[in-house]
Design a protein around this nucleic acid. Structure first.
Lengths: 65, 65
DNA sequence: ACTAAAAGTTAAGTAAACTTTACATTTTAA
DNA sequence: TTAAAATGTAAAGTTTACTTAACTTTTAGT
């Protein structure tokens, strides 16, 4: 699944570690999701959504659309 | 996490088994998610969203908002 | 060029999503 | 009211999301 996390994160001038702390996950989790190694859980997707003030659908792109 | 799956599903006159087949998951998975036993993965949430033609946020309610 | 911070990656483990099988209970309809 | 369909539930297994720890590579600032 594609996502805009890196763009959104850098727009806020946050490091991966910053994001990890804010969202209460590990830095490796942020890195892996940004790099598309796996998808976030739905609750974590909601956390991204709230932080970036964007609907989940605008952050994550489920290609089979 | 709260959700409106049962209402949405019955509005379409589908059984849990119907939904399961359509979304390519097991009937037990549909049942468990409807009953709030666990949250769907993000890809499965997207499938619900497409089927019901509603944003993920209107189907699932992440209470800590 | 050097250094430090940030990002990337890997391994080994835990937790949660999801599977299959099986059976019990509830709902629906003839 | 009884039979079939639908729903609920549980156990045991697999897969995927996530953790910690450790190390390497890349990026940015002086």
């Amino acid at each position: 699944m594609n996502n805009k996390l890196k763009e959104l994160r850098t727009a806020l001038k946050m490091t991966q570690a910053d994001l990890a702390t804010t969202l209460e996950v590990s830095r490796q989790t942020i890195n892996a999701i940004e790099k598309g190694k796996f998808d976030p859980s739905l609750p974590l997707a909601f956390k991204f959504s709230r932080l970036f003030k964007l609907p989940i659908e605008e952050i994550f792109d489920d290609e089979e659309n």
